[in-house]
Simulated assay, not measured.
Amino acid sequence: MAVTATRVASAPVNFGIYSRNTDLIGAGELLAGMAEAGYDGVDSGPIGYLHSDDLVRAGLGLAGGWVDLRYGDADGFEADLAGLRAALEVFTSVPVDDPRFAPRPTLACPSNVARFAKPGGVAPGIPGEAWPEFAARVQIAANVCRQAGLEPAFHYHLGTDVETAADVEKLLELTDVGICLDTGHLWLAGGDPVAALKAWSDRVTQVHIKDASRTVLAQGGDLTTAVANGCFPALGQGEVDIAGFADALREVGYEGWIVIEQDAPATGQDLDAILADQRANREFLRGVGL
């Protein structure tokens, strides 16, 4: 089955825009750069950084945005639901011309201290007895998204409670939440993105394509160090079989957003170099038919 409908988005993380350092580049300049590079949309970055009017002016859609909640902490989770609802108000304010390209609320976990210190599927994750309550809260968050009219995508991630393919499969077993299949994070946690896509295709509600280097990760250090060392390089410069993954997307008939990510090392990055990378990343993906 061929891919019938995909759009490609960039993301503020590519420019070093994470949760707090939003002063690196103005939203207008960032969006103009993405539009010029040929992207169809963008991930939200920190909630409040981009606004609906900014996207409309740039002619870009909103692919979704990251919202982490403390699923392992009952009181913390209840407090975090307010942030999820605030994010959903932002997402639902953006014009959507095709329901397949509505924003995906990207549900995720905060850092797990042991896994952040030693990322890559080595440190232990959620104890078996804690999974039912953890998964029940993920389900609640997914239901809140659906009540707002949006379908969520749960993003497993290095350095968090849900990091490995085994973690993802447990979550799929205990909930009906969709998955954001991130090629780079899965690869660095010991997984195979092509095999995972084929196994999870009926639950994949968003795709993040990023290259990754196990060689860099093996140099040691925590997740921040690994990112600064370049464990997520430009597309085609790591070890992920992106061409094979593109073929698998066509095989399973994926429809929806594809977000290109290349986490930039924190502050001090050369914005011209970042824009050059993002143009090259988009061209690379065109070269594999996406």
Results as ranks from 00 to 15, higher is better:
Thr4Gly: 11
Thr6Tyr: 00
Ala11Gly: 02
Pro12Val: 11
Gly16Asp: 03
Ile17Leu: 06
Tyr18Val: 12
Ser19Ala: 15
Ile25Phe: 04
Ile25Gly: 04
Gly26Pro: 13
Ala32Leu: 09
Gly33Phe: 10
Gly33Asp: 10
Glu36Cys: 10
Glu36Ser: 14
Tyr39Trp: 07
Gly41Val: 01
Val42Thr: 15
Gly45Arg: 02
Pro46Asn: 04
Ile47Thr: 11
Gly48Met: 01
Tyr49Val: 01
Leu50Glu: 01
Ser52Val: 06
Asp53Lys: 01
Ala58Asn: 03
Gly61Arg: 01
Gly61Asp: 12
Leu62Ile: 11
Asp68Pro: 05
Ala74Arg: 05
Ser93Ile: 05
Pro95Asp: 07
Val96Ser: 15
Asp97Glu: 15
Asp98Met: 06
Phe101Met: 13
Pro103Val: 14
Thr106Met: 07
Asn112Arg: 09
Val113Lys: 00
Ala117Ile: 03
Lys118Ala: 13
Val122Thr: 01
Pro124Lys: 00
Pro127Asp: 08
Ala130Pro: 02
Ala135Cys: 14
Ala136Leu: 06
Arg137Lys: 03
Gln139Pro: 12
Ile140Arg: 12
Ala142Tyr: 01
Ala142Pro: 06
Asn143Arg: 13
Val144Phe: 01
Cys145Ser: 08
Cys145Met: 04
Gln147Phe: 05
Ala148Gln: 03
Leu150Ile: 04
Tyr156Val: 04
Asp167Phe: 06
Asp167Gln: 03
Lys170Phe: 06
Leu172Thr: 09
Asp176Tyr: 00
Val177Tyr: 09
Gly184Asp: 01
Ala189Cys: 10
Lys198Asn: 09
Lys198Thr: 12
Arg203Asp: 02
Gln206Glu: 13
Ile209Lys: 06
Ala226Arg: 06
Val227Phe: 02
Ala228Asp: 10
Asn229Ile: 05
Pro233Leu: 05
Leu235Met: 08
Val240Ile: 02
Ala243Ile: 12
Phe245Cys: 08
Phe245Arg: 02
Ala246Trp: 03
Ala248Asn: 09
Arg250Glu: 11
Glu255Pro: 07
Gly256Lys: 00
Ile258Val: 15
Ala264His: 08
Gly268Thr: 06
Gly268Met: 10
Ala273Lys: 05
Ile274Trp: 04
Leu275His: 05
Ala276Gly: 08
Leu285Glu: 14
Leu285Ala: 13
Arg286Val: 12
Val288Ser: 02
